[in-house]
Amino acid sequence: MGGRSFETERMALRALESEDASSLQLYLNDGAIRGRRYVPGSVRDVEPLSRSHVSAILEEWGKEKAGFTLGVLAKVSGRLIGHATCEWNWDPHCPSVSVVIAPSQQRAGYGSEVLRLLVEHLFLDTPAHTITGWIASWNDSALAFAAAFGFVECGRIPRAGLRDGDYYEHVLVELLHREWATGQGGHRAA
């Protein structure tokens, strides 16, 4: 990682520890984020998770070699309020990102701050050229969130899963380095 700090005035991204299991279990089992928990692919994204499930998730995140998952800490409370992942399993040229904020802490601007830190890290400290995100087509708030940040939809993967009696799609969104830099008014680290 580069010299940038993984924190803002209100929050910090930090490594996840086994002691985080209870906080993690609490918000991962909140029905409001069913299907958008962004947990490892070996864990289904819908059922309530036991402590051993959550420990397995933490262990899997800890083994990531081509990317990382960090916890989102709210400074005011000292509580874990979410997690964020960058991964480049295919190629560091085109990493993907995901951000999950506990439902009780949403709409407070934490997600935007986290995403800004991740994108700055990838574009300023790694060879990333195109950053992608995968969002379920029913997840309107995440789609709006990504669009507001400058991500653009670049297509859809049909029949990604079933939800409430219908198929949904995965919406792919992308952000090119040069478009981000332009939107930022140039490379701020230069």
Binding site: C94, G155, P158, E174
Partner: peptide, 16 residues
């Protein structure tokens, strides 16, 4: 059929 096109996500043979 092509359902998604992620721009410049591949660098190969000297080309994006």
């Amino acid at each position: 059929r092509v359902t998604a096109r992620i721009r410049e996500a591949v660098y190969k043979n000297g080309k994006l």
